[in-house]
């Protein structure tokens, strides 16, 4: 099912929206012009994952020397800080963890949208402050941008 989130101008880079689709709460992110959508429920204890801080990856071979870089697409749950890759929902904190659902996101032109497409309600969200793949995978969703509208595929 395709769900319209918003007009692409309403989701500029480094911003996010948390939207409600039926019972689901989904966070839609624009990171450096790339769109991602992920379930807003952390598989660990159910925290509001999409309110969490985004970071790029941190790499260290030598204690005290840390390189950060790349796309800031790792979201840390605002509760226990477990991190998930927005693109895949994959967690990186070792084995034995469950995934969080990621959804497909796209931007679709108004003309291309059919009447069956649902509209997502934006949720008021509290202000967000701020490796080795494991079996925890966050639910992600496909996102497309088709000219004007940000659309997620559930």
């Amino acid at each position: 099912m395709k769900v319209v989130v918003c007009h692409v101008e309403d989701l500029p880079a480094e911003e996010r929206k948390i939207v409600k689709v039926g019972k689901r709460s989904i966070g839609v992110f624009n990171v450096d012009g790339e769109f991602y959508a992920i379930s807003n429920r952390c598989p660990h204890q159910g925290g509001p994952l999409c309110v969490g801080r985004l970071s790029s990856w941190a790499e260290s071979e030598i204690p005290g020397e840390v390189e950060v870089g790349g796309s800031a697409r790792f979201v840390a749950c605002p509760w226990h800080g477990w991190e998930y890759d927005l693109a895949t929902g994959q967690s990186f904190m070792g084995p034995n963890e469950i995934g969080v659902k990621a959804f497909d996101v796209c931007v679709t032109s108004g003309a291309a949208l059919s009447e069956d497409v649902a509209h997502a309600e934006e949720q008021r969200s509290p202000t967000a402050t701020g490796r080795e793949p494991g079996p925890y995978v966050a639910e992600t969703f496909q996102v497309h941008v088709e000219a004007d509208y940000v659309v997620i595929e559930i």
């Binding site: 925290g47 800080g81 202000t127 967000a128």
Partner: peptide
């Protein structure tokens, strides 16, 4: 402490 010691959604 991480996150100033608190849940980020509890402000």
């Amino acid at each position: 402490p991480r996150n100033k010691g608190v849940r980020a959604d509890a402000w």
